[in-house]
Design a binder for these strands. Structure first.
Lengths: 169, 169
DNA sequence: TATTGTTATACTCTATAACTATA
DNA sequence: TATAGTTATAGAGTATAACAATA
């Protein structure tokens, strides 16, 4: 849960203080961020952080942070997936996945089985507990989606998903 | 610049290997991420990271990382803005802004003047060098926007900005 | 008493290099 | 030789508590 700020107004307004004080030294009344708001990266990052803040709170009940959730979700929908495949699909680095997988295994949410054809690889499978947890967690995530996009119509929400995917896919 | 992956396909396909091997142990051929792709947070985060990766590369020339850029941009468009106002506008925490402002000042891009009415506060102002740098940097950022959204029409790009702002504003 | 800016610090996330076992 | 998984570790980003100066 990152910063909590209330003031994000964007209306531009300056006011000169003390007519004969230091030259040009004025106080800023309302911070103008209109330029940044024209940039996709700025808006996407701010939106992502806002959504993830709510996601973190909602998923605490399941002991899943965003990356844990996405890893478990991919394993849930792709039993037998390898670490390397997970890294490619989710844009993670292998060293950072190791501890994650170990902790999921220690919690009894997944187990690891030898890969049927590649002796170097290991298949990741959800345990019954893991599958049950993810069924609940994905339902909660989907519920949260609906609340989160309360200010968007269903069509707008679909449009937003499509446009975002055009950026990163 | 985060991870660079090539495989992000989503077509679902499994293949059973060795008809009489261990029960249920199959290899995953194509990783299915369709569920995650229905979540705003996942898509916003992936899109933001993709955009920021390109932004980092382009802005290296100016020695500006995304947060440096946004801080400089706000100072540029709001000379005299205080640290507290910057934190509110950009959702930063005060302790994390201190070092940032110090390094921008050390580089001669901004200078700090006493606030005209509040003795506790300090106004942040761009130097001529800082203003000149930001004029170039913002032009480069805007150019990058256009390249980045090559797969989007101008109308789609505007729609995307508006929808993202509905999420976090 | 509340707020601005700061210090110190801890925690998390992300990244790189190098090793092993197998292909 | 190349790839899957791992280890160790460094660096960046983000968080909280507490303090001095001013309102």
């Amino acid at each position: 849960m990152p910063q909590k700020n209330t003031d994000s107004s964007t209306k531009k307004a300056k006011v000169k203080v003390k007519a004969n004080s230091l030259p040009q030294v004025t106080a800023v009344e309302q911070v103008d961020t209109t330029y940044l708001q024209t940039l996709l990266g700025y808006n996407a990052r701010r939106a992502a952080l806002t959504i993830i803040e709510g996601f973190l709170a909602r998923m605490a009940e399941f002991g899943l942070k965003p990356v844990d959730f996405s890893v478990m979700s991919v394993i849930h929908h792709n039993p037998g997936v390898t670490s390397r495949q997970l890294c490619s699909a989710l844009n993670l680095l292998p060293p950072n996945l190791v501890g994650l997988v170990q902790s999921l295994e220690a919690r009894g949410l997944i187990h690891r089985l030898p890969h049927p054809t590649d002796g170097r690889a290991t298949g990741l499978h959800p345990t019954p507990d893991g599958a049950a947890l993810m069924q609940q967690a994905e339902q909660a995530a989907t519920d949260l989606e609906i609340e989160r996009s309360a200010r968007l119509s269903a069509a707008q929400r679909k449009t937003l998903l499509d446009l975002l995917q055009k950026i990163y896919l």
